[in-house]
Design a protein around this nucleic acid. Sequence first.
DNA 1: AGCACGCCGACT
DNA 2: GTCGGCGTGCTC
Length: 714
Amino acid sequence: MTAYCRVSFPLAVNQAFLYRLPDELKNRVRPGSRVIAPLGSRKIKGYVLEVSDSSSEPGFQVKDLAGVIETGPVLSAKFLNFIRKLSARSLSPAGLFLELTEGPARVPETRLVVWLTDKGKEVLEEGKLRGKSRQLLELVSQKALSPAFLKKKLGDRRLSSRLKSLEQAGWIELKVKKRKLRENQLQAAPLPRQLSLPVVFPPEEGPAGSIFRALQATNFQRFLLTGEAQKRSELIVRVVDEVLKDEGYIFILVPEIEQTRRWLPLVKQLGLEAVFYHSRLTEKKRSEAWEQIISAKSRLVIGTRAILFLPVEPVRLIVIDEEQNKLYDQAENPAFEVREGAELRAREEGAVLLLSSSCPRVSSYYHAQSGGELIDSGEPEVLSAQQVVYLNQAGWLPEKIKEETEPYLKNGQQVFFFINRKGYAGYLFCPACGYVPRCEACQIALRLDKKKGELVCRYCGQSISQPEVCPVCGQKLRAGRVRGSQFLLERVKKALPDFELALVEESEDKKRMESCLKKIESGKIQVVIGTEYALSRLCPGRFSLVVIVEPEMSLNLPDFRAAEETFIRMFKASELLDNQPASKIIIITSRPGEPAIKDGARRDYLSFYRRELEYRRLLKYPPFSLLVSLSLAGSNLRQAARVSRRLMEELEQRFPALEIIGPKVKPGQWRKVRKEVRLYLRPGTTEGLTLLSQFLEEFSQTNSSVHLQSRLLF
DNA sequence: AGCACGCCGACT
DNA sequence: GTCGGCGTGCTC
């Protein structure tokens, strides 16, 4: 009998590799172990998924496992199950997920150095060598250096093959050097704690009561909590408080790092022992947080999706704050759907999953309502129709802006302008024939840089000098402006020259933005213009007038959730309004009757929900069907298209009843090098989904030249 | 991912 | 001949 193990690597290779276990490693390797394994010409870190005995050799050459790394967390079977399921669902390699469980970075215990041999010295002195090889030997002649350093210094992409040939010639030697380790680096992380369960929760009726009963049962159960933010957090805090009296961990998941701040005052006020955890902590902070969590000194963890991979047990409650947030479906490296990840973890742990939002996704609401897991923390406040004013294009006029805002500003109140388009970009066009200069290579309309007098391609970065006349009809070209945030800023400035304005949108200068937000909070800045970025960063209930500019733009996006997303944005913008009788919302739009706009502004969730649900029912979109969203990303379009054709053929053959929507090429984001082909699959049943998932997993393993990502929409 | 390998054009 | 650039395919 020979012992084998399957190993997954933290690489973009969704495949487990089989290795033989040498006798001396047999007792030290178990599922979850971190190991060193030879892969191609390198030796790299990987994670053992399973260990097995077999008497028959597989049909390929099996290499021996090279070693075990004994430090690091020990993973339970439950936890590995969670990782395996998530990996299968998302088609992302288990190794990438497992790397996230490691906690603070550890300094490697050894390092490789390149030595110059006597023979190498001779060759160097003879002076026959040229180019990079000579440079390399010269560098190494002073002192031994690491391959990584040499690669950087020489700018050599093929350093490893060069080292190999130099080593073979006997001119250099590769040696392993041991590093001195500090005491704490040698310690293995403690085992996940298995706590004694269960304990009694207060018996009561009402919203908290049903959550307590679910916690008591320690079985997976899913709730949707809706209602106003303040009331929702009050309820969450009550539940958290009870669990902390008991045992086990609580994860509160927020969509982005920024949003951990919202929980800070609440935690302080209640004197809760909480740890904030996310990927951008400094090394020291990360170690401290890790230590707090692992040792169970703190069992309440608030943070981004990184917290789902904390190897602690048992987890009793996972809260997904702002469940409607799009960032939850955009996790990358590894790619996965965060809500799905949270649910899989909760299922494995027998924990309660609590989705929370004032305007949940239509699917979430539908599933919660039909499953009886909806908790409404209080009557939502719908604005009266009188508080919402519609303007057409005239709303852009400086005089109009002045007229509408001045009463509020003179009163010392604040005004927010919401525009969902970042825009600095100007462009050239021909007023006679409509010609627009495009990049010859990329076929994208060129952006006008007025200061430099140049036209620039956003895609490839190439620029040409600004032409005067239209090459088609000879007319003088005119400059147009995208009516985005920058344009709006200038307009408002013109209308309100006596007030200080702030533009709140994504920017490089994080510090400036921070002080800007503080000035808004203190009331120093009265007029704020913001994009979607601002919605999650400004305080709800702060503004007396909210002006929403052309929200209909996002309605035409080719996505069945376009209306829902528009509605959510409207709703969130509307939540910034204080609840004074004189306060109002102005919407500059050409489509005032659109439900997403009308209901969003008034925060009338149910009205929008009913209508949208009907639309989804008619078109058989989620929640009335399952959709698998697939993306194939390759280094170039041809490659991605080739694999997508192969995929289509195989799908049609194996699943004749499967509905395939697409494929189409995703319009590339600026600067993105990878090209993506997207398609949707609609399996009729859940059994169909299981078979489909299996097939997709196999397919992604045999077609590793492209990046396959799958996302389940339901 | 990273690495090898092969093909190609440029340049001692 | 040798070097570097780029595309392709594989790793137990």
